[in-house]
Design a binder for these strands. Structure first.
Lengths: 186, 186, 186, 186
DNA sequence: CATGAATGAGATTTCATTCAT
DNA sequence: GATGAATGAAATCTCATTCAT
């Protein structure tokens, strides 16, 4: 087994359950089945581990959202595909999603290099700029659009998790919420 | 001087700057100009202080949002008044607002008693239910509405804080974002 | 009510239940129904309170043991009366007795002034010396005799408390244990 | 060097001199020549250290008392051997003996598991039961016998330590005190 | 690469004691 | 006399991090 990945997996579970500061590195090592020292062999500091975990997860999300593009898709279709797949990713990976939420509202966020952030968001930013240039989206700043959509997604997700609706209803709400946001930005 | 309030003020500032765990109680006491023991005279534990601070701030927000009601206001007007005053409260009290954001995505949230949460949200929940009964709002669950609006507000606020637009533009965005959300929920 | 006595009563109960160091002065004050400051009004330090409580209890025991002397009693009869009344005192006042036991094997013992100790033991020491002079007791040092009898008493008491025997049996054991000790020292 | 044993040794010395609560863990670590953290690496809490020290010492005493058994010894001889070796152990290891005394009359006693206590006393209890079955000892409950002998031993020890008699005299007193207790229980 | 004993700075919390009212 | 808010020294315990094996 890849010890590095075991460490990340253990860290993820524990961070979400107990918070970053509520999780000692010793417990992560123990849960991962490695020694205390090994953790620090792979990650020089605890902070580095936290950030590495964030980048690891973010990369998975970005890949997931970007995939599935079909030829000749309309902008709206692309948008919807990305919106819906983000939504389902969050629903299917609640632990990972909660981790990113926690991370965003923590002092760790400022430890992620600017470059890394750009790398993660570039794809979406570029897409939105194109959509604006094509007169499909309203000519709003792309980061405002990004923020609006993200917070909308987070809101819907929070609701779906909290009020356990059945799959049918869930699908309906997701579709509906896409329409709402689409109306907002076009 | 009320030492209890001095402690809360100091805690607020430091928590937002350094995070809950990045702020030792000793620094809070020092910043508040009281002894270490005094802090623990008023709050049995650090956790208790954090929760007390949350309740203190939440109570202020709730009071602020609820105030200003005029006779004969339409539901939409009431809604807009509350939306706009929430927005301005967040903009005028960025420290307090960031604190509540931090608090919500922290393990401390689960330490707030259910009763306390109800007390804070009842007013809005009741209002939304009435608006639904009056066929003004869509017949969605009030907690979904609440979550949607909250995350929308947070999104807009984040954007306004990040991209420092002038007052005129700010006002425009707020009005516009109200229209967007109003379209979503009616 | 005499606040001083209330404090002593509360202290006794708490010291026996939680130990000297497991009992904060604040809890004593609370339990006694007086303010924190009042406790320190009567006793300058916690140590002083502990010692005062010891002297208070010891005085009661000594008085109890010395009382009941009848005219023309033989030395053995006097001895037995004192032995038995000590035993019953310990059984009827288990809290007080346990307190003295705790006190004896604690660093507080060395805080009791030599004079105070003499005052408490003089009566018994003198009596034993007379008994030796009268060739009734073996010519052993009185403090050895004292230690032997005390530890014997403590041993029997511990046993009687631990193994709850009925009154009849209890009486029998006490009488028997007197005979044993009497054989030892005569 | 075994750091764990160094810690126990330092703790023993300090506990006897200053009491359990008068001895901060920091001083134990310092005296043992290890860091503060090391102490807590071996013993999760101070309480755990205190109890571990007790078990450590008790095990040494028990081993010492049980050893030296010769073939064909009469019950009385075995009894005397154990009595005398207990006495000498206490005299030669006054620090250890005082520690156990302190421990017994402290709230820490209740933290020792029932099993551990049984393990320590089984040997003696069994022996006494056999002696009773052989009609050598009076048919008293073994725990009464145990308590009586223990308190007698403690009493004699206290006296011998307090009144520094010469070796000759000491031996005489020990022998004599054995005769006394033997008369009591047979 | 892997280990885990060792470290020690630092955090939270307790509590005897004081003192202004 | 009585109060209890205020104090701050000190205690226990945690935990990220290092390093010899």
């Amino acid at each position: 087994m890849d010890k590095q990945e075991q460490i990340l997996k253990a860290a993820l579970r524990l961070f979400v359950e107990f918070g970053f500061h509520g999780t000692p590195t010793s417990k992560i090592a123990q849960e991962a089945g490695v020694s205390n020292g090994t953790l620090f062999h792979y990650y020089k500091t605890k902070d580095e581990l936290v950030v590495a975990l964030y980048v690891y997860i973010k990369t998975k999300i970005t890949g997931c959202i970007a995939s599935g593009k079909e030829e000749g898709e309309t902008i709206k279709a692309t948008f919807k595909r990305m919106f819906v797949s983000s939504m389902y990713w969050a629903l299917e990976n609640p632990i990972e999603f909660r981790f990113t939420q926690q991370f965003h509202s923590s002092p760790y966020l400022s430890m992620v290099s600017h470059e890394e952030i750009l790398k993660q968001t570039r794809y979406l930013m570029d897409f939105m700029q194109e959509a604006i240039d094509a007169r499909v989206l309203k000519p709003l700043p792309t980061d405002l659009l990004f923020t609006l959509i993200s917070s909308h997604l987070a809101g819907i997700n929070e609701y779906l998790v909290a009020s356990k609706v059945d799959n049918e209803k869930q699908k309906e709400i997701i579709n509906h919420s896409f329409d709402l946001i689409w109306d907002m930005i076009t």
